[in-house]
Design a protein around this nucleic acid. Sequence first.
DNA 1: ACATATTGACCATTTTAATGGTCAATATAA
DNA 2: TTATATTGACCATTAAAATGGTCAATATGT
Lengths: 88, 88
Amino acid sequence: MFNTIEIKDVKREIGALVKAIRKQRGISQSQLAKSLDVSRTTIQNVEVGENFTVDTILKILKEVDLLEQVHHEISKSKVQIMDAKSLY
Amino acid sequence: MFNTIEIKDVKREIGALVKAIRKQRGISQSQLAKSLDVSRTTIQNVEVGENFTVDTILKILKEVDLLEQVHHEISKSKVQIMDAKSLY
DNA sequence: ACATATTGACCATTTTAATGGTCAATATAA
DNA sequence: TTATATTGACCATTAAAATGGTCAATATGT
């Protein structure tokens, strides 16, 4: 009834996204790892939803030209929050 | 001229967002850390733009009820990519 | 003014992500 | 089919994130 999203679910979804991006580009884990200067194990862990660092995911996002967009979204959220006066 | 966004810039922006959220809620680093079950040092490192894990940022996003939204955005991106046939 | 809370900056230790490696199972191509 | 590439699963080691602590500087409140 209350299927709330858990942290592990989001990590799995991130992993699925990374795998989808990789497959869409038709490259192997090894090739992606090399172009990001990380190990294949790191790519593998991301894809299966293990814990990983923001550096790793941001490297991936940069590789697929999503870094600017993500940066913009975060900045927008920040401004929204700073503009919103506290209700208390 | 080419002010491209770097990974460190995004981490700084995430840190600024976290700090803005915390300030908006009027709570201290210690209080936030306690409610997330992480150390104050971790919050501090996030806010200043050091490297950190996705677990940490997702805990924060869950605390501010942004986990479902983020999950949905990631899922949407994934579906888009999987639907888009390769150009090659 | 004062007392108190918060923050920024460290630092040693513990925990864990990242690495590089192997190998069997599976997928892909010839 | 056979050969080759890729993946998933491990595992020991290294690098680094997380922890818990202190303390001076700064902010906040009385």
